[in-house]
Design a protein around this nucleic acid. Structure first.
Lengths: 137, 137
DNA sequence: GTCTATGCAAACAATTTGCACAGCG
DNA sequence: CGCTGTGCAAATTGTTTGCATAGAC
């Protein structure tokens, strides 16, 4: 199982396969509880503790990232190769991803000014999505 | 008291003055607990509930913003006029602010592509600060 | 004096942990 | 068949709430 390559040393259990599978097919933005709900549909005996334990494991292994968006949105997403940013709708809470090459120049500028070694840069934008914008009129 | 102007309708209590004062003099990045600790130094009878209640009040009034940085950093900061971004040190957790004019072009580009009405854009970068970088060698 | 804000303790919500058993390797 | 992962329930942590009293206006 190719996707399990990262689990070296760790055991590949049905629960772990299930959790990863859900994350992979979920457009990437789920909180622990939604994930638990979805997992129970397929495997009713799974426990919430297992979901948390494995999310933490996957984070440590670098397969999954936790994100804390503005107020009350703790999400998890599978790491992908292409770096992407986030758009958060203030109306419905929906999170949309977008790609944008955050220019090397910005990072270099900041590194120079701050003394930080910048590894990672992420933009998040807030606003209203098309649907919510219409609803607000 | 000029700084209290925003508290229209609300009462100006010693606790509220204290909390705002601490936030204002703290370089802006504190979590609820640190704030509580600092407040108790000056006013030992203050309660944690009061800290939370007032942080929420200040947020509603738009005087203070809550931020959730990568893993386990729920901070509050007083809103200032100049828009700024954040640099988070993966070593020591320190948060440093920087200014950078996030060009209107980026926002417009995104708005067009996504249908979102973008109100707000923020960059956060992760890396290692000068000190931690040296420690890691 | 009235009515909002506070302290305290109890309630809640989200996440973590201890233990005995299940099941991967 | 040994040892890691799981389910369950209890523990912990972060935040909110109800109630009687203090104190701003």
């Amino acid at each position: 199982m190719v996707e399990m390559k990262v689990l070296t040393g760790q055991r590949v259990t049905s629960q772990r396969r299930l959790i990863l599978d859900i994350l992979r097919h979920s457009e990437g933005h789920l909180d622990a509880d939604e994930l638990y709900r979805l997992a129970k549909e397929r495997e009713p005996r799974i426990s919430l503790a297992t979901v948390y334990r494995n999310l933490n494991l996957f984070k440590e292994l670098g397969m999954v990232e936790g994100r804390h968006f503005a107020e009350e949105h703790h999400h998890y997403e599978v790491k992908r190769k292409r770096k992407h940013h986030h758009l958060i709708c203030l109306g419905c809470g929906r999170v949309v991803e977008f790609e944008y090459p955050l220019t090397r120049q910005i990072k270099e500028h900041i590194s120079r000014k701050s003394g930080f070694k910048v590894l990672n840069a992420e933009v998040s934008m807030e606003g209203y999505c098309e649907r919510c914008r219409k609803d607000r009129e």
